[in-house]
Nucleic acid binder design. Sequence first.
DNA 1: CATTCGATCGAC
DNA 2: TCGATCGAATGA
Length: 209
Amino acid sequence: MALVLIKSDERPDPARAGGPQSASGPQDVLPRSFYQRPTLLVAQALLGKTLVHGDLRVRIVETEAYLGPDDLASHAAGWRRTPRNEVMYGPAGHAYVYFIYGMYFCLNVVTEDEGFPTAVLIRAGDPGARGPGVLCRELGLTREHNGLDLTAGGSLRIEAGPPPREKVVEAPRVGVDYAADWAAKPLRFYLDGNPWVSRKLRGRQPDVR
DNA sequence: CATTCGATCGAC
DNA sequence: TCGATCGAATGA
């Protein structure tokens, strides 16, 4: 039995560690300690959380984990360090937004310790954002948002919330066939049955190969 | 400087 | 299955 499907939110969630505040608002913003944990765990813990940009809000329903220098599908594979992926080497809780295929942007959240390049790609949001490119388009996210601190209480942030009721499904990542044995690893996670999860992935059996 | 390719998407 | 579309990465 794999060590996945951890109910990470059951453990001490810093955002809920009884502060003097209550109700909703900036105090629900996920703190850096949420992100500065194992990427695999953060990828699953983000499911069900609310991604906010200004007045726009979506529920995160699909993510992918990029595990670091050994991960051949990662932009930081082999410790590659370029202007583009620089924020992956920075502190957790910052946005890594990059331009892809000449027309889309993709949003990641940086995880783990500063200096170790890992991140989680946000792939879909409920409602209206089926796929990472569409998600950024719908939320108005571009290169301007690259590097922003998601924990600073600004217009771009992720808010806490209860664990999702849905079952968390694991599956291989998308578009990384070039990554040899890393392509088949179950590093994608999504909420079972959610209509906004990427199309190809929904109808299909998770572990087929 | 030239060339290749991509953590995508939606139409066919 | 394929074309759109162009910046980032790589190599000459």
